[in-house]
Simulated assay, not measured.
Amino acid sequence: MGTGGRSAPGLPRLRAVCEAWIGYLERERTIFPGGCLFVTAAVEFDARGGAVRDAVARLLLLWRRRLAEEVRTAVTAGELPPDTDPEQTAFELIGLYMSLNQAVQLFGDTSAPERTRRALGRLLAPPPR
C-alpha cells in the first residue's frame, strides 16, 4: 500500500508514501491492469459480509491509522499546522488516492497524477512561518 519506510518519520515519510502511491498508479495500467487491488476489493466487497470484506476492512483501517499517525508526528514536529486533524487528513489522503485510481482506470486521465500532486501540496503544506 505504500513505501516510505526509509524516510524520516512525519512529513517526509508521508510525502514519500504519497508519491509512491501516485507512482504505482502511473505505472499500474501496464504492470497490474485493473486498478489498485485494495480499492477494487473495497468497492467489490464493501456491501457484502464475510471474510474477504472483513479482511479488506481490517487492512484499510490499519492503513488509515498509519497515515493518521504520520500526520500526528508531522504536527508534533511543527511540519504541519498545529490545528491539523490527523484523522481528517488521513481520510482526505485516502480520498485522493481513490479518486486518482478512478481517474486513471475509468477515464485514462493522464493529468490525474499531477492533479493529485497539486492537491497533496495543499493538504500537506507546512505552517506559515
Results as ranks from 00 to 15, higher is better:
109 D>Q: 02
111 S>W: 13
98 M>V: 05
23 G>V: 03
28 E>S: 15
92 E>K: 09
100 L>M: 12
28 E>T: 09
70 E>I: 01
38 F>N: 01
52 V>W: 12
106 L>D: 10
122 R>F: 14
59 L>K: 12
111 S>V: 13
123 L>A: 06
90 A>W: 04
104 V>T: 12
52 V>K: 12
6 R>M: 01
80 L>N: 04
44 E>F: 00
85 D>P: 05
65 R>L: 13
77 A>F: 07
63 W>T: 14
22 I>M: 04
113 P>E: 02
81 P>H: 00
84 T>E: 04
58 R>A: 12
110 T>R: 14
30 T>N: 07
88 Q>F: 00
15 R>M: 03
10 G>R: 06
121 G>T: 14
124 L>S: 06
97 Y>A: 11
57 A>K: 12
6 R>F: 00
49 G>P: 03
76 T>G: 10
44 E>I: 00
124 L>A: 10
53 R>L: 01
128 P>N: 00
119 A>Y: 10
85 D>K: 01
57 A>I: 02
19 E>W: 00
73 T>S: 09
89 T>E: 01
51 A>D: 13
43 V>T: 06
35 G>Y: 10
99 S>A: 13
129 R>D: 14
91 F>S: 04
45 F>Q: 02
100 L>F: 07
33 P>F: 00
1 M>E: 05
117 R>P: 11
42 A>M: 10
85 D>Q: 02
32 F>D: 11
63 W>G: 13
